[in-house]
């Protein structure tokens, strides 16, 4: 690995001061450290935010859920409080990577990274979540830009995410059999703001909402409403794992399964 300077930040304010120039924040390190080992990333400094208590934990008050950016996938997957109001999100977290990855990787790191096949971004979009940073609040709809790009500015730190628990929701992931990342993942949520369908793993520009499927489900929130639904393939990814046409088909199938699971 390239030489790097390590700093352990005691607070968000200290981390913000240190995260300048070529420095990078490290949370769970489950994306950044492997990227540094293969030299896809070469920050001058690492600012470790994983020991900042203020970034950790899950709060549920009524229907409002707040998850600290430093909360691990394991903690999200096993939180009883969260499972009561939004089991779909617990389920999503339980399918990320493997147990050792879930013990370290965090929700803040996952959404800041915005990998086109990451699971959490789809949940944030479908739940209409708000991403809270040390500077401002950003609606999920405005947060995820293109592959590996978000609305975050240099040195800006995600501190938590917050959303209103939906009446119904589910996540269905069609996993690549080798990497277990999503070839297509669909998060469906029906809440006060209507029906939202967010798709990961498939879009040329990363996670996106499917207007076609949302419109069909707004009329009737039932898998049957998708019998003749179609998703255009022209903005979808084609790679060695699946063609755009295959993904377009899979999105409808996964959405149908997700709606059935949400209604069950």
């Amino acid at each position: 690995m390239y030489s790097v300077s390590y700093h352990r930040a005691a607070s968000v304010a200290e981390a913000a001061k240190l995260a300048k120039g070529e420095a990078k924040l490290v949370s769970g390190g489950m994306t950044l450290i492997p990227a540094m080992k293969t030299r896809l990333a070469a920050p001058s400094d690492l600012v470790d935010i994983s020991r900042i208590d203020a970034l950790k934990g899950i709060k549920v008050s009524g229907k409002t859920v707040t998850i600290g950016a430093g909360t691990t996938h394991y903690e999200v997957a096993t939180s009883d409080k969260l499972a009561k109001v939004c089991p779909a999100l617990s389920h999503l977290a339980s399918m990320i990577g493997d147990p050792a990855v879930r013990h370290r990787g965090t929700i803040g790191g996952s959404i800041a990274n915005n990998d086109p096949a990451a699971d959490y971004p789809s949940a944030m979009l479908a739940l209409g979540a708000t991403i809270v940073t040390n500077k401002r609040e950003i609606a999920a709809d405005k947060f995820f830009k293109v592959l590996f790009e978000t609305a975050l500015k240099e040195g800006e730190i995600v501190t938590s995410v917050t959303f209103t628990a939906p009446a119904k929701a589910a996540y269905e992931k069609f996993r690549n059999p080798a990497s277990r990342y999503a070839i297509v993942g669909v998060f469906v949520a029906k809440g006060a703001g209507g029906v939202r369908v967010a798709v990961t793993g498939a879009g040329d520009d990363g996670v996106f909402r499917s207007k076609e499927l949302e419109a069909a489900l707004a009329k009737q929130f039932d898998a049957a409403a998708l019998a003749s639904a179609k998703v255009p393939a022209k903005t979808l990814m084609s790679d060695m794992h699946a063609s755009a046409d295959y993904r377009a088909h899979l999105i409808v199938v996964m959405t149908r399964r997700a709606v059935a699971a949400a209604n069950a």
Binding site: G29, P99, V101
Partner: peptide
């Protein structure tokens, strides 16, 4: 080199973790 094989798993504060994907300094 890809954090996938698990040959390096140890327990850190009671939890299984991949020791190839964290710095010694992070474990201090």
């Amino acid at each position: 080199d890809t954090s996938q094989c698990g040959a390096c798993v140890v327990h850190v504060d009671g939890k299984a973790m991949k020791s190839c994907s964290m710095l010694a300094a992070q474990a201090s």
